[in-house]
Amino acid sequence: MQAAPLTDRGVVLVSGDDARHFLNGLVTANVATMSAATPRFAALLTPQGKIVVDFIVVEIPAEDGGGFLLDVPAALLDGLLTKLKFYKLRAKVTVEDRSAALAILGLWGDGVDATDAGAVDGLVIPDPRLPALGLRAVVPAGTAAAVAGTLGATLADAADYEAHRVALGVPRGGVDFAYGDAFPHETDMDQLAGVDFKKGCYVGQEVVSRMQHRGTARSRVVPVAVDGFPPPPGTPVTAGEIAVGTMGSGTQGRGLALLRLDRVGDALAAGTPLIAGGIALAPRKPAWATFAWPGETADAS
């Protein structure tokens, strides 16, 4: 098992009598039914249904004070605080930046389980997006090495975790898609347990529900295989003269790209290669995905 401090993450604490109801009315996941053992992957959206910021919601056990910790991209933390304070109105809610005191640790690989979590000074939870991602730990700042030792993990760095994420085909905001310009379906949140389609209203819910029921998501972040290192994020992907998408993150031999799947299907049918920065890409459907893939029948999973 490996453990890597994820220094690009920040932590927000949402607490108070109305914290659960407050969050549940704002974000894409069902916070009303979660518990300390069932974290959620969620996003705050614009009224037009585009992602402002995505995060992992972790409930603090009542015996430890209660409330919710949001594991959020550090670069977007101030903006999230502003939004949450704007929405809280008269709700009995306190919103605090806890990034100076708490840190996020990613744990993955052989031997990953939460059986030793009770020995850790912090919260260790399964990553709610995909079991293969492993665990997330919210721990006191500066204790990463100690936590890794307690859990019997080898201390790694964020680049190792990124390679693990890319290999699984899981998108990362700010690299594989642009915040403020992508719908949850385009970033595979609907596939990665990030949207509850049965819960009540939240900001942007009507647009997301319409995309779900009409099947109108034409673009998706998907894995691509490359020979060598992929081109940098933001590199246009083309099929002949036709733009089909944009490159995202990558490691040796593989990457992610936000692609128009209808155009990818046309290119594959015509035998036209996908090219980004002069490098040929071979797109593939993630093992965990249930959305239709070019060449599959409409009801394929």
Rank of each mutant, 00 (worst) to 15 (best):
Q2C: 04
V12F: 09
V12L: 10
L13H: 13
G16L: 05
A19D: 08
N24E: 01
V27A: 03
N30R: 15
S35P: 04
A42N: 01
A43I: 06
L45A: 00
Q48I: 05
K50N: 08
V53Q: 12
V57G: 03
V57Q: 11
V58D: 15
P61T: 14
G65L: 07
G66S: 02
G67D: 03
L69G: 07
V72L: 11
P73D: 04
L77K: 14
L81A: 06
T82V: 15
T82F: 14
A91Q: 06
K92T: 14
T94M: 11
T94L: 09
V95E: 01
L105F: 10
D116R: 15
I125M: 07
L133P: 02
P140A: 02
A141F: 05
A146D: 10
T150L: 14
G152R: 13
A153E: 01
T154N: 09
L168N: 03
R172I: 12
H185E: 12
M189K: 05
D190Y: 12
K198V: 11
Y202C: 00
E206L: 04
V208F: 08
R210E: 06
M211G: 03
G215Y: 03
A217P: 04
A217I: 03
R218C: 05
S219G: 09
P236L: 06
A239D: 03
T246S: 13
T246W: 15
G255F: 12
D262P: 05
D266Q: 14
A267D: 05
L268Y: 08
L268Q: 15
G271S: 02
T272I: 12
L274M: 00
L281D: 03
L281E: 06
R284P: 01
D299R: 13
